[in-house]
Write a protein that binds this DNA or RNA. Structure first.
Lengths: 122, 122
DNA sequence: CAGAATCCCTAGAGATACTG
DNA sequence: CAGTATCTCTAGGGATTCTG
């Protein structure tokens, strides 16, 4: 691939779109938690140690907006809201497996590269 | 996968590590441009329309630090510096193809989902 | 040519308190 | 229970200027 081709591809690049959609600090974790079964708001809050209500709600809204998550409200008292990943999100996750493998295989290399680089900067 | 399993996986999650490494605004584009041949600093600057020198240098340094890019200095006058993606980065990119396919296939769905969601918020 | 240094501004994210 | 509403802080990123 030439530099120009790379540039053109990067502009409307599908990969960039995927990354943008999933780059949030909690997005992947929340999707992973809702892949196989509906999960309630409070369950998610407990499953994500350290997340604030604000970020939980914001991330859920974004995922719902992008069609990666469905939000189902049961109008009971007290209210009950369940979140479930869509087929689209499940399919996305199958493609993430390749990346996961890469990360696992190259983790030592990366750590070493970072150490060497840091050392070379004194 | 249970909620707890998803949580545990998300903590030291390899996927999160990959995303963190590639989530920068210009990282993927720069890697793509240097995949097949060494590219000079100025060539990169011209190939990435809109990038500032600051971000170009910062992104290059991060990629170099993570072992995804090599930086070769030719001590000539004027100086000449070439950047080239490593094998590690090239292998990473093969795994990005799956994501690219997903993005291309689901682009219409996502656009529609966003439109419907926006509409439903009045 | 290939950067380093500086200033600034905004979006992402945390903490806390309030509510249908 | 499942959210809003504020306030705040930091890091990512842009614009501009300086230099070996």
């Amino acid at each position: 691939m030439s530099v120009d081709e790379a540039t053109a591809q990067s502009q409307a690049c599908p990969i960039v779109q995927v990354i943008d959609r999933v780059a949030g600090k909690w997005s992947v974790a929340i999707l992973a938690a809702t892949l196989s079964e509906p999960v309630r708001y409070t369950e998610l809050e407990q499953a994500m140690p350290g997340i604030s209500r604000r970020m939980l709600t914001l991330t859920l809204r974004n995922l719902e907006r992008d069609g990666l998550l469905t939000r189902t409200v049961y109008p009971t008292i007290p209210p009950r809201v369940e979140y479930l990943a869509t087929d689209s999100a499940r399919e996305l996750f199958t493609h993430l497996d390749g990346l996961t493998d890469w990360a696992r295989r190259h983790q030592p290399d990366i750590i070493q590269a970072v150490e060497e680089f840091t050392a070379s900067q004194q």
